[in-house]
């Protein structure tokens, strides 16, 4: 597979390390009343869709950026690549 890195252009997927569902960037609040349950869902339960999947890839053999790749799990077609940090900043709950 080839991942089109936002800065570095198309790179072989072998340069990356895969982590999993991009929802892993949304770590729950440790002080929530149901923190134990929230962390259980966060860490262990997955949608695991057959189709579009937003997922985390780490450019370990490159610039060490974490990317969020939108990829179809049936066809492997990649439709979007973003910096995870940008997404995480944009998705921060407004304080």
């Amino acid at each position: 597979m080839i991942i089109n890195h936002p800065l570095l252009g198309p790179r072989d997927a072998a340069e990356f390390v895969y982590k999993g569902d991009a929802s892993l960037i949304n770590r729950p609040n440790w002080q929530a009343d149901d923190a134990a349950e929230l962390f259980h869902e966060y860490l262990y339960l997955r949608d695991n869709p057959a189709g579009q999947h937003r997922e985390l890839w780490y450019h370990e053999q490159g610039d060490r950026s974490w990317l969020i790749v939108t990829r179809n799990t049936l066809t492997h077609e990649i439709s979007n690549v973003e910096f995870a940090r940008d997404v995480a900043l944009a998705e921060r709950p407004k304080k």
Binding site: K19, L24, I25, R27, Y58, S65, W66, F83, A88
Partner: peptide
């Protein structure tokens, strides 16, 4: 790096 970029950007 995951913590830095994804959890506490």
């Amino acid at each position: 790096e995951f913590c830095r970029q994804c959890l506490w950007p």
